[in-house]
C-alpha cells in the first residue's frame, strides 16, 4: 500500500463542544490516524464516543479544538467539496424523485453546477447508471415515500457518490435497517467501492459490518473518544456473506470484541 501521502490524516486531534448549558463537552482526545488513498476504514465504538464528530472534522464542517486535520496533505479549513456523506437517516428531499435526489450534488458542487443545464442529459445518464449499480433501475422516477427504507438508503449512497468524491463519509448508514436489508447493502457498498476505489470512512457500531467492509478497523474508547485499537482485515475481496461464518472472519470479530471489552473495564 502506498504510504507516501495519506489521503486523510488526523494529527493529535482533540475537540470540545460547548453545550447548551455553557459547559464544555470533551468529545475527542488526541486522535491520530492516517488513511491511505482508496482505503476503506471503519470506526467502531460506543454511542456518544465521538464517531460522528470525526466525520464532521474530516468534512470540514467544524474546526478541531487542538491538532490538525489534513486532506491530501493540506490542512482542512472550512467545508470540503470533494467529500460525499450519507447518514443513518437517508435525508432525501421528498419533493424530488429518486433520480433528482441523486442529481442534487451536481447542482451544487463546482464545477458541475456551472454545466448542469448544458450537460443535464449526461448527468442524468450517470445517475441512472449509479441507480442501476445499487439495484434501483426502474425506480428512478419514484418519489422517496414510495421507496422502502433500504431503497432510500441506496439512493442516499448514490447521492453521496454522484460527484465522484475522493472521500466518502458514512455515518452508521445501515443502522436503521433490518438485518436482511443491511447485509444486502453491505454487498452493494462493497461493489460500489470496488468500482470507485474512493477513500471511505465508515462509522458503525456493528463489528461484523466493520470486518466485512473495511481494510482497517479502528476501535474508539468511551468519551472523550480516543482510538484504542487498530486491526487490518486481510480477507480477500469481494467478500461474501458466506465468509462471515468462516473462522478467519469470526476471529477478527472476536479479537475486536475482546479489545472493546478491555476498554469497557
Amino acid at each position: 500500500m502506498e504510504r507516501s501521502q495519506p489521503c486523510v490524516a488526523l494529527r493529535d486531534v482533540s475537540l470540545f463542544y460547548r453545550g447548551d448549558d455553557g459547559r464544555e463537552v470533551h468529545a475527542l482526545e488526541g486522535v491520530s490516524l492516517s488513511i491511505a488513498q482508496g482505503e476503506f476504514v471503519a470506526i467502531a465504538g460506543p454511542s456518544g464516543c465521538g464517531k460522528t464528530t470525526i466525520l464532521k472534522l474530516v468534512a470540514g464542517l467544524m474546526p478541531a479544538t487542538r491538532g490538525q486535520v489534513l486532506i491530501d496533505g493540506a490542512p482542512v479549513r472550512g467545508p470540503q467539496k470533494n467529500v460525499g456523506m450519507a447518514f443513518q437517516n437517508p435525508t432525501l428531499l421528498p419533493w424530488r424523485s429518486a433520480l433528482e435526489n441523486v442529481l442534487l450534488p451536481l447542482e451544487v458542487v463546482a464545477p458541475h453546477r456551472h454545466h448542469f443545464r448544458s450537460r443535464q442529459r449526461e448527468y442524468e445518464a450517470r445517475a441512472q447508471e449509479l441507480l442501476q449499480l445499487v439495484g434501483l433501475d426502474g425506480f428512478a422516477n419514484k418519489p422517496p415515500y414510495q421507496l422502502s427504507g433500504g431503497m432510500q438508503q441506496r439512493v442516499s449512497l448514490c447521492r453521496a457518490l454522484i460527484h465522484e468524491p475522493e472521500i466518502l463519509l458514512l455515518d452508521e448508514p445501515f443502522a436503521a435497517l433490518d438485518a436482511f436489508t443491511r447485509e444486502e447493502l453491505w454487498g452493494v457498498l462493497q461493489s460500489l467501492w470496488l468500482a470507485r476505489r474512493c477513500t471511505v470512512i465508515l462509522v458503525t457500531h456493528d463489528l461484523r459490518e466493520a470486518v466485512f467492509l473495511a481494510n482497517t478497523v479502528y476501535v474508539m474508547s468511551k468519551r472523550p473518544g480516543r482510538l484504542v485499537h487498530m486491526t487490518h482485515i486481510d480477507l480477500p475481496r469481494p467478500r461474501t456473506l458466506e465468509q462471515m461464518f468462516h473462522t478467519q472472519f469470526t476471529d477478527y470479530v472476536h479479537e475486536i470484541y475482546n479489545r472493546i471489552g478491555e476498554v469497557r473495564v
Binding site: 464532521k56 468534512a59 470540514g60 464542517l61 467545508p79 470540503q80 467539496k81 467529500v83 460525499g84 456523506m85 447518514f87 437517516n89 435525508t91 428531499l93 442534487l104 450534488p105 447542482e107 451544487v108 458542487v109 463546482a110 447521492r159 453521496a160 460527484h163 463519509l169
Partner: peptide, 20 residues
C-alpha cells in the same frame, strides 16, 4: 444532516435556501 450534506458540497446559504 441535510444541511451537512449540502455544506459538505460547498453550498452557499443561497443554495441551501433554493434547494432545501
Amino acid at each position: 444532516e441535510l444541511r451537512d450534506v449540502l455544506r459538505s458540497l460547498g453550498a452557499s446559504k443561497l443554495d441551501l435556501f433554493a434547494k432545501v
